[in-house]
Design a protein around this nucleic acid. Structure first.
Lengths: 231, 231
DNA sequence: CCAAAAGTGTTGGTTTTACACCCATGG
DNA sequence: CCATGGGTGTAAAACCAACACTTTTGG
């Protein structure tokens, strides 16, 4: 073969990492999962969970592994957001990051580990100072998320298995950052035919109990043709 | 600094490349720009223009440079499509590709160069066998393009500076792969307020001449709020 | 005068929005 | 019995889809 490893020597040394932007709803707020870095660069600063690819890993596999290692969170569905390749984004040298988005329900237990001092949820609109270009990545992830929530059924990934329509509506309102009309919301959701009633009721507080629903399918699907579910 | 270059040695060697999917309309068909590879791997096979990043280049800069070097095409606006990082996608070893989409008007002159035997336009729906995972990349690019043409003003990048409404409609029909109603199309386009009349007429053939239009702004913009311009 | 593409409005159906009251519960 | 969130329908407005004929030209 005319090309071999050594022919690449004139090219810049480069490493590839994966990062994950994991959103949840906790305390009625949209939150994002961050770790406090144990090692330089940016030691002590918060950052997205992520790290370098190992020899035989795809970027997605690396993101899944790093998530598990650094935060204990696993079994999430990741969607690629894009590649971040500015030559100056990492002070160590050339590191390109492939970033992913995921949604988690807030019952996920977080644990700290070797690479991270701690893993915690942060309010999307009140983030600490972040390492690298991670603030920009989260910003992009939010835009992406707003599109996805309206064109796919990803909401199932963030809610518990059974939920009330009010909880679902609240999720949409948090992500879209706008109030939705209760009756119109319910009409639309029911037309989409994604949900089914459980026959159970959810009781809490001094008011009428709410019907619990579940997603018919707990796997990623685009919503059929109807591009815009809510505006 | 606790981490330095040498600490990366346990990680897989990896190289990063950029590829560009350039679309145009030529002979009333949607076409893609491909090069015939001069060197292995896949010597003699068609592939997307692209190549390895140099030391201080961002992936976008590399894509622009490779496009110019391999095809002579320049001054295009690129939009990132995503990263392709399957460990097996390149027989030489680990090569991650960051892929970009661009539109070109068909007057661009193509020239062949050192790395490529030739650069040519190919019908999107009649492509030759392609190197690497480039067939998949083009497929993804088409989906992306269909979304972009409906939510942004990128059409300006593919048409000549002045054009008729019929030419514009044809462009949408080719990308969306469906016929559009002439009157509805014109109504919508005029509402979007992206175009202005030149006072010139375009004459060709034995029929009434058409008014020539131009885009008010020749820079990338999302269409305001109205997510779906055509269905 | 013929063929060919340019140009132009209206209507019916569908979708979206705005809006207000009764219900069931716990305390 | 009261405060709280759950649950429900309708009417007006906006939007979308379907549709046909006249105009201008070159040959």
């Amino acid at each position: 073969m005319a090309f071999s490893i050594k022919d690449w020597s004139h090219l810049g040394r480069m490493q590839v990492a994966s990062d994950a932007v994991v959103f949840t709803v906790l305390n009625n707020e949209l939150q994002v999962l961050l770790i406090k870095r144990r090692y330089p660069p940016f030691k002590g600063t918060y950052a997205l969970p992520g790290g370098f690819l190992q020899q035989h890993e795809s970027p997605e596999e690396a993101a899944i592994r790093e998530l598990r290692e650094e935060t204990g969170v696993q079994k999430l569905h990741l969607h690629q957001l894009g590649a971040y390749g500015d030559p100056k984004r990492d002070p160590r040298g050339r590191v390109l990051s492939v970033s992913y988005i995921a949604l988690a329900d807030h019952h996920r237990k977080l644990h700290s580990t070797t690479d991270a001092l701690r893993a915690d949820w942060f309010l999307v609109h009140n983030l600490p100072k972040l390492a690298f270009d991670h603030a920009k990545i989260i910003e992009d992830a939010l835009v992406h998320l707003r599109l996805e929530i309206q064109t796919t059924n990803i909401a199932y990934q963030i809610l518990t298995r059974k939920f009330t329509l009010s909880q679902l509506q609240k999720l949409y309102e948090l992500i879209l950052e706008k109030k939705l009309d209760k009756r119109n919301f319910r009409k639309k959701i029911k037309e989409l035919d994604l949900l089914e009633e459980t026959k159970e009721l959810f009781r809490e507080g001094a008011h009428r109990p709410a019907m619990l629903y579940r997603f018919r399918d707990r796997e990623y699907k685009p919503l059929s043709e109807k591009i815009q579910a809510f505006l």
